[in-house]
Design a protein around this nucleic acid. Structure first.
Lengths: 223, 223
DNA sequence: ACCTGAACACCGTTCAAGT
DNA sequence: ACCTGAACACCGTTCAAGT
């Protein structure tokens, strides 16, 4: 696993790879995922496109490295809450914030299947919290994916909403009023004015309350 | 909203648009979303690429139309269960099945923001179920998105797992054993042998149990 | 109304060749 | 070890021109 030049004192390689990722991340914030092009990245680095392929096998590998760097800040400095549920809530909220920190961050992360140190540490923090709360491993695994899918799905939607042409997302008035969809019509105000923070918290709480219920049932059975 | 040729008896236009979508969907199953190209689609239709742009403004509009057709089968023929929770469970399971019916179906649907009849009908079915169970509109809205994000996130992952080179997804042995990630190490068996049906049901149940809890609290407050 | 031919402005990736 | 120059095999989209 030793990187090139690690012992020779030539740190250039190491630095270069990191620098590429850094510039790629700042370029991502400028132009978004769809605008993030190997050619454009090469321009920003004042280098030929082909040079990038010496450092990364392909574009996906670069995106994976970017995702790894993104979740470096997925810390666990949430006040060591007495309650595991609140702890989990804080942790997931922090994860969302980390994804929101970069344009299209959630999409980049969802598309990159990294097993780097930062990603694994993040997963360990989440799963150990649930495990220490007394759940069986199968529930820990189930809870992990339920929470991850929810956060990613929610944040992808949130970010594509934020960077979409204004109002393109709400269902048009005429499509709903006097339609065969009475419930949607009544929900229209909610579509128009979305409070993402509140909605994220609501759904997150739903999942955690579901977990609490499972524990209650486990205790009942044990008696 | 009248389509061209609707009154003249020339149904060619109408049929063509539908035919393009049909062929596009079958092509999707052959080559996947990344392989679904306007040029390749044109070849299959024995037509020039530019011809497609008379029927669809751009590729996204075609993808939207494909998504609309996909969820035509999102029916409500779930046995009209006594319990709204079980009803919802069946409905969401059907939605997952519908997305699984096409290669990369979930990714196509998640990327297409359609407000077509089928999509709205599907949303109406979901929200009316929750609403009739006695929840306030804000909860109906929250439940809608929580469930939708979960299903989409889960199914996108499932499909990209299914069509990925074997075993590329499980965390490597050496990365976990004797690592600073003890919980992940214990979870390894679950990563290697994934039962998607069971895990989908587990997470779905978590969300629904969370909803039940909310109702109990509402009743308690009312007393 | 519907399609063709041909072009425009891009992509990711490869590879011999340079230093 | 690291990068350049140049090419390959593609993309989505546009548009004058045909019928």
């Amino acid at each position: 696993m030793a990187r090139d030049g690690e012992r020779t004192g030539k740190k250039q390689t190491h630095l270069q790879r990191e620098k590429i990722v850094q510039v790629a991340l700042s370029l991502l914030n400028e132009v978004g995922l769809d605008g993030l092009t190997m050619r454009r990245l090469a321009d920003h680095l004042e280098v030929q496109v082909a040079a990038l392929y010496w450092h990364f096998k392909n574009k996906q590998e670069l995106l994976n490295a970017m995702a790894e760097v993104m979740i470096t800040d997925c810390k666990d400095d949430i006040p060591d809450s007495e309650d595991w549920g609140e702890h989990l809530q804080g942790f997931m909220q922090n994860l969302r914030a980390v994804l929101l920190a970069y344009r299209d961050g959630a999409r980049v992360f969802a598309g990159a299947y990294t097993t780097g140190y930062n990603t694994l540490r993040c997963a360990e923090l989440l799963t150990s919290t649930v495990s220490q709360a007394g759940y069986p491993l199968s529930s820990v695994f189930g809870a992990l994916w339920t929470l991850v899918y929810y956060v990613l799905g929610f944040t992808i939607e949130e970010q594509s909403f934020l960077s979409s042409p204004e109002g393109n997302y709400s269902i048009s008035q005429e499509a709903l009023t006097d339609s065969p969809f009475p419930t949607l019509a009544r929900l229209q105000p909610f579509f128009e004015n979305r409070d993402f923070d509140a909605h994220f918290k609501y759904g997150l709480n739903l999942i955690i309350e579901g977990l609490r219920k499972e524990k209650e049932d486990l205790i009942k059975k044990a008696l």
